[in-house]
């Protein structure tokens, strides 16, 4: 597809791309902040078009059908509720996450030993930068591309792993696996992060995947 990927933002907001175009645009989106910003507003406008189609009420039994099905799924997956609740907890306490990053930084500046953890050791290098990964954590990149992330995520479910990715316009490369859990995971990335990259994290089958099988649930908010 030779088209300028930026031009797909409105068709994407309208769900007017075919599957292949959609996947290609989502890869672009992961590395293009301009499109992410633009998309947010356009998606909201597109969604409000739904109100232009308001018509008759759905039959009452639809509500019951949905709720019955939802409850039965919950009962079938007993371990899930706990896992799911723990997913929301870190986000609920957005401030606490920022604090956990600050704590990492604080430990470094107050007590120094660069070996405290790999995150602080990256941050302690001159010219390094810390980039937010939303409310769940942060990415630190040293000038030479050495990088680490601190991320507050629950332990990965059985048979699954977290996988970090270095995402660039010319491709996506694995940057290591980790299990999550505890207060926060501090992970040194297994490959350098070149300028102009985005770092994202997905949940994959144990052992990792050659390429991400889902959209990153968390990604660094700007290019490095």
């Amino acid at each position: 597809m030779a088209a300028d990927p930026h031009s797909l933002v409105a068709p994407y907001a309208l769900n007017a791309l075919d599957d292949e175009e959609c996947r290609a645009f989502e890869q672009h989106l992961a590395v293009c902040e301009r499109c992410r910003n633009e998309l947010a507003g356009l998606k909201e406008a597109a969604a409000s078009l739904a109100y232009g189609a308001v018509g008759p009420a759905p039959p009452p039994e639809l509500r019951e059908r949905i709720l019955t099905q939802a409850r039965s799924e919950r009962e079938n997956v007993t371990s899930l509720p706990q896992r799911r609740r723990s997913w929301t907890a870190p986000l609920a306490a957005a401030a606490a996450i920022a604090a956990s990053v600050a704590l990492g930084l604080g430990v470094w500046s107050a007590t120094r030993p660069a070996s405290t953890n790999v995150f602080t050791s990256v941050v302690s290098q001159p010219g390094s930068r810390v980039i937010s990964m939303g409310d769940q954590g942060a990415l630190a990149v040293a000038r030479d591309g050495e990088a680490a992330i601190v991320l507050r995520v629950p332990r990965a479910p059985a048979g699954k792993t977290y996988q970090a990715w270095v995402i660039r316009d010319d491709g996506i490369k694995s940057a290591g696996l980790f299990g999550g859990g505890g207060d926060a995971s501090v992970v040194k990335l297994s490959r350098p992060v070149p300028r102009g990259s985005v770092v994202g994290v997905t949940v994959e089958q144990a052992g990792g995947a050659p390429q991400p099988t889902q959209q990153p649930f968390v990604a660094s908010g700007e290019k490095t």
Partner: peptide, 8 residues
């Protein structure tokens, strides 16, 4: 949202 969803 059920009603808007159904209308759409």
């Amino acid at each position: 949202f059920g009603r808007v969803a159904y209308g759409l």
